[in-house]
Each structure stands twice: as C-alpha cells, then as structure tokens.
Design a protein around this nucleic acid. Structure first.
Lengths: 339, 339
DNA sequence: TTGTACGCGTTATCAA
DNA sequence: TTGATAACGCGTACAA
C-alpha cells in the first residue's frame, strides 16, 4: 500500500501538501493538486485509518452490542444502522452478546480499546452493568429497545404493547390466556398485559405462564416443546389463547398446536410480538404487535450521529414509538379477511 | 483515557517497560511488573488499538461482506463468525451489500482503508468484481457460500441441492414443478434441478419459472404476489409442486396458496431451501434442503484465522459441505409423521 | 533487566 | 500556497 510520503516523493512536493490535497481542507495550487491526484489514482492510494484515527483522536467506528443477530428483528436493526452509518463515513463493529452480561462487559472493553466514537446498545437486561460503565466513560451511547433516563434511547413501549394484546384478546372473549416468555414479573409486555386484566377486575389465572428463556437461540424448539407439554397436560379450554412475547416463540407454539390437532383460533387463539416479516407467511397468518423496526434502527443511529457529527450536546432525548396491533386470522379466524 | 506514557511516569519506569509488562513478551523484573500492574488496574488502562495497529501493521479486524443481514440464514453465519473471531482477539466490521456490486466495491474500499487483516465475503454474484480486486490485493480472503478457484472457500453444493429436490419431487410423482427464484439459468439450485429432469428424459415444462429477484428485502411479499398471480392465471394442476430457492420465498408462496384455498401438499406440494429455523414452525411444516449453517460460519472463519494466526501459507483450500433433504409435510403430507 | 530512540501514516500548527 | 516539524500511542531494535 502506497503512503502519502511516497506520493509526495513521486510528486516532488511535501507530504503535507498531499494531505491537504486529499482532505481538501485548505487551499492548494491547481498544479500541485493535479499532479498529486494523478499519482493517487494511478497507485490506487488508500488512506490508513489507523494513522488518521491516531492523529485525529477519532475512529469513525461505532460499536453495536446486540443480543442475537440471527433474530430477524435485530437483523433488521443492524441493517438500518449499518446503512445510515455508512452513508456518513462510519463503520460498525458488531458484538453479539447472546444476552450474556459477562460477554457484554468484555465486548465493551474491546470497543473502548478500539476507540469507538459511539455505541449503540441493546442491553441483555434493563440493568446490564455495562450501562453504568458506559455512563462513566465518555463514549456517546444510545440505548435501543428500552427507555433510559441517562442515555438517549429509542424504544417501543412494551407495556403498551402488552396492554394492546390484552385488550384485543379480552375483546374476543378470552379470559384464560397462556403467557409465553422469559419472565413473568419483569417482562413489561407481560406486566402490561396483566395490568389490563386487573384494571377490569378480571383475575388472571394461576399456572398460565411458560418460561422459555430470553435469548435462547433455539427459541422455536423451546416453545414447541414447552407448548406440547402444556397442552398435553391440561384439559382443552384451560387456556383459550396464547400470547408469546415474540413471533419466533409463536412459531414454536403454532407447531405444537398443529401437532396436537388443535385448530387456530377455534380451539386456541395465538398472538405474537414483533410482527417480523415472517408472521404473515405463517398459516394461519399470525396476529402480532408490530414494532416499527426500520424506524427504530434509523432513529437510533440518527441520534448517535447527531451527537458525533453535529456535536449536539443537549439533554438526553428519548424517542418512544408506538406499537401497533396487527390482527390476523390466528386470533380473528377466517372472517379476518385478507388483511 | 490513560496512556502507557502516563503510566510510565507514575511508575517511574520507561514507557518501553510498561509495554513489556503489558505484552508479556520479554522479561521484566517482578518489582516493575507489580508497580505497573497496580497502576494499570487503578486507572483502568485500555490499550489504544489504533496506535498498536500502526506500530504492528496489524489491525485484528476482519471485514464481513454479506448481502442481507436481516436474512436469518446469513444472520446465523454472522453470529458464528463473530464468536469465533472474538475468541481469537479479532473483531468484525460488518458490511451489508444488499447484493449490490457497487456497494460491495465501496465497502471493500473502506475495509482496505481500515487495514483489515482479512475478509470474509458472501459475494452478490459469482462474478462480483470485488473478487478480482481482492485477488490483486494482499488481503486474506475466504469466499463463503460458493466455490472459488483462487480463494479459500466454504460452500454447500447448490447444484447437488437442486438435484436432491428434483429427485424428491419426481419420486413423489411431480413432473410439473413451478420454480421460484432469481434466475432461471444462473442459479445452480435450479440448474441442478433441471439436470435431473433431463437425465431422466423428462421434459421440464415451459413457463414454470417465477422471478422474484435475489436479495430483495421484501422477498416474502414478492413471492406472495407472484404466486398469487400465477395460481390465479393457470388451471389447477398446471403445476403440482413449487420449489423456491429459499425458505423465505416459500413463506410467501405458502401464504398465496392458503389464500387461494389450495391445500398443501394435496393440491400443490411446496419445498424450500436453507431449512432456516422457521421452516418447522410453518404450517404444514416445510420440506426444505438444509445447509449446515453453523458449520459454514465456523469453518469459514477458521480457515481465515488459520492464515492470519497460524500463518498457514499453503494452497487454496475449499470445503464442500453436503446439503441434506429434510422432508416434511409440505411435500409428504400427513403420513410424514412427526419428523 | 532496563532505557533511549525511532518508526508506523496521518493531522495540524507554525513559519516562511 | 508551501514545507518543516511536532504530535498521536504504541512496538521494538539497540545499547547499556
């Protein structure tokens, strides 16, 4: 790889002039510019970012800490982030945490070593220790997917999402609903769901929760097996509907129900969360709560770049986006039409 | 952020000694080591990679060029790659090409500027120009997902995959098959499929191809719409089976068939490709051709690290992995049992 | 075992 | 408009 110094020699100018030509920062004589550019072209000069970073104390690197890239929902976020970052001269270093706070910690450590200018983080949990570490560092941070009091954040209200689902199912007459998720008490989707029940004076039945872990990569299988066991053990009607905290789990439940010859939604209604691009392909089409995933990704990176590039230095900003019920046949039945 | 120089001052030693302590390369007196380490701990010293890269002419950075991260199949590859790389002290810069060779080119350019030690590339097409660029550079490269004569490569034979599908469908008596993909003549899955037909003297019918583009992000919808139109226009039996070159497209077709009240597989059989973790959640469970995606990811990064770390300098190696037919109800019907 | 000194490829400051 | 020259933080050859 050719360097500025070498180009300077060939061109018979100083290395500083080459730098000026390439950065376009200050004025250079047309002659010098001409000669330099020709040599640059000819030798396919590429600047050395490491050197540039060192000199400018800026890496144009953004760290992205995310629980599971293979989850299409997160994948879409990555895609948006990478695109928008690229347009602005930034690159993304990706860190898959598996939802493990230990991994998160070591990854943040290497991101710091890499001198990243900023970090987008989808924390493993709302009290991930890295959030504290980040706060004590001077790395610009945006928390994605959940609200945060000290950082910029972009999120969809899970509480509201859970409430919407509850209202939808209650409206259809379901009072015995099986909840499928990672935590019965700490997952806001579930909290919101139950909130509506208690507000309406409806008692949420005991033993209607299936714990399938949070970021288990084999979520489909987990949900499938748990669902199978549940519906084998309980009489039909013990639960007339199932709400899973994400679509992926709903796939597993769907499979289990099919296996047991239970009809959806006649025997058991099913509703997921995220409305990934696969929900509508499911059979019957899956009701779900859609999150504006492109917007989440885009707004997140935009907020970060706003601080990095435009040097915005105001108070912490949070963007709350609205979840949207997408009712399809898996809860509505055939009369759903073809939405 | 504290630097070696500052640590050296505090410790009353030279910066070189601090470097030695931290790298553990050469011998240092226990006393010096002790003092330095304490200060390092206390101030939470983090090495500056940019500086290190510059000095060592090594970035410990690997570029990953991939068509669509939001596709779960690729997502899984990213996951494996990131993990294995991380274990060996390397980080991943991710580049989403959208299957666009222009984007590929500019991304490779910035990867070069970033001084990446190696590149894993899933090319937009088999003759992506960046392959030439890479060959003329000194960047270690592994081509993933397709064979290559000049680079290390890891792939599953698409030709063989297509053949397997043809054999499976012919075995079930389907001779009129609708093919759904990006290219009728250049996609090896389709080429292999037709190969079997002609070997057996069976003429593949005209007008049995639906072009839905390659990396269109809205593949499900594309397939859905195309499928809908196709099955509306042709009499039942014009095609008795559908083969889509990936599962995502199969989701769309599944939706279309359902909409038209065509039963799977009684009216139309359906088979996909990739066997993503979602296939088994589909209803009926989707037959597909599985690719050992974890192995693809793992082997790819391993081959690259082998050259980077172990300095392997032998001939180009290619790893061909075998596709595997996973027959489920969408082709076999209810007698499929519960595989 | 330690310190000095140089180089890595840039940016940026200062005179000229 | 240009060219020296000093950083930037680290690795390392060399001498002590």
């Amino acid at each position: 790889m050719i360097t500025m110094k070498e180009i300077a020699e060939i061109a018979g100018v100083s290395q500083a002039t080459v730098s000026r030509v390439l950065s376009g920062s200050s004025a250079v004589s047309p002659r010098a510019r001409q000669t330099v550019m020709e040599i640059v072209q000819k030798h396919d000069y590429t600047p050395n970012y490491s050197a540039r970073n060192l000199a400018m104390d800026q890496s144009f690197l953004i760290g992205l800490i995310i629980p599971d890239i293979s989850n299409p929902f997160f994948g879409e976020i990555v895609r948006q982030v990478e695109r928008e970052a690229g347009r602005n001269g930034y690159n993304i270093i990706i860190c898959n945490s598996d939802g493990d706070i230990t991994k998160e910690r070591s990854q943040l450590q290497t991101l710091r070593a890499r001198q990243v200018d900023g970090v987008l983080v989808i924390p493993a949990s709302s009290n991930s220790p890295i959030l504290t570490t980040l706060y004590n560092s001077d790395i610009h941070t945006v928390v994605v997917t959940q609200p945060h009091s000290r950082f910029d954040s972009v999120y969809v209200s899970h509480l509201e999402g859970g409430r919407i689902v509850a209202q939808h199912l209650l409206g259809l007459g379901h009072t015995r609903v099986l909840l499928v998720g990672d935590s019965e008490s700490e997952n806001d989707k579930i909290v919101g769901f139950k909130q509506v029940f208690s507000e309406k004076g409806i008692i949420f039945p005991e033993d209607h929760f299936l714990n399938i872990g949070a970021w288990d990569h084999d979520l489909v299988k987990q949900a499938y097996l748990s669902g199978l066991e549940y519906f084998r053990r309980h009489r039909p009607g013990h639960a007339t509907a199932v709400f899973t905290v994400n679509d992926v789990a709903a796939f597993g439940i769907n499979h289990a129900l099919k296996e047991l010859n239970l009809r959806i939604p006649d025997d058991v209604a099913l509703i997921g969360f995220d409305d990934t691009f696969l929900s509508q392909g499911l059979n019957p089409p899956l009701s779900s709560v859609s999150q504006p995933v492109e917007e989440i990704g885009r707004r997140s990176i935009e907020m970060l770049l706003d601080r990095l590039i435009r040097k915005f230095d105001g108070d912490v900003r949070s963007v709350q986006l609205n979840p949207l019920l997408v009712a399809r046949e898996s809860t509505l039945g055939r009369q759903a039409g073809h939405a």
